[in-house]
Design a protein around this nucleic acid. Structure first.
Lengths: 152, 152
DNA sequence: CAATAGTCTAGTAAACGAATAGGGTAAAAG
DNA sequence: CTTTTACCCTATTCGTTTACTAGACTATTG
């Protein structure tokens, strides 16, 4: 499960992607639109800024905006920033591999083999989906092109 | 990331799957083979027993054994038991759906659309992989049929 | 009955998660 | 140049979870 922090980061970036090229957006505006605690969101945006994903402007007319075009920011990048590796186990992570202390033979660890598949599938999806893609898929749903709902 | 508890549960079940049909295996034996704290493993096996995945026998010649054939126990079942839903967000879980409190319109939430894909991919892999499959894939690696290693 | 081996309840130290608090600093308006 | 607007940054709180550890209890076997 993703942390709230990660979910909020993605929601905020979705807003900034939508407003991309139209000047800065206030923290309070994002918070209002996504119903997130403004103070908590501030922390999150600050972290995204330190990671170089967004930029900010102070004073009147200030706010946050994407540092790069929405087509160049993948969901995978953001999730890794906020959450750490995508891999279900550290021993299958490509970006921050670590062996399991107790594992005798990594090569023949069945759990690892399966979890590597999961990691690869997750990475394939998240790394190939950009903020622009996300906006487009939302637009498709609104136009009734994509799956309308799904059974709980 | 999976918890140690989940990883240990899967490792223990892998051992029990290998020994399936050959009588009970001692907690201490599993702990030794997988280098897990025996006391912690005890708690985990107890939980698996209460969930009906394994059975036990007390006294001399006792130990734990699988309650069902390895072909009928999926990794997905075990992960859900120990970890909860596979879904990265509660609003895309099929087994324990819950809406996000702050979400205005779930249907047009971009994050949700992407995370639903991740959930589906994960579930497809974990629910279609049984303990027997895991053993077989390990055997394949030992025989040099499957990917020998992969770059870190 | 003694030895074996699982059952079950508690406890605990450390880390984590989700905020909240509040003063600091830069930029623009007047 | 001072006020207002907004972001900047550090610290703290508080409840929950994680990963164990301890130890007494109970059933089975020989």
């Amino acid at each position: 499960m993703l942390r709230n922090k990660t979910k909020y980061a993605l929601k905020a970036l979705q807003v900034l992607a939508k407003e991309y090229g139209q000047g800065p957006v206030l923290i309070s505006e994002i918070a209002r639109r996504e119903r997130i605690s403004p103070k908590f969101l501030e922390l999150i945006l600050l972290e995204l800024k330190n990671q170089g994903v967004v930029q900010s402007k102070k004073g009147k007319g200030g706010g946050y905006f994407l540092a790069r075009a929405p087509q160049t920011v993948s969901v995978g990048q953001i999730v890794r920033m906020m959450e750490g590796p995508l891999a279900p186990l550290p021993c299958v992570s490509k970006t921050s591999y670590m062996r399991c202390a107790e594992c005798r033979d990594e090569r023949t660890c069945g759990i690892r083999i399966v979890m590597k598949d999961v990691r690869d599938a997750t990475a394939r999806i998240l790394d190939s989906t950009t903020l622009a893609d996300v906006l487009q898929r939302v637009a498709s749903v609104v136009q009734g092109k994509e799956g309308l709902s799904y059974a709980i």
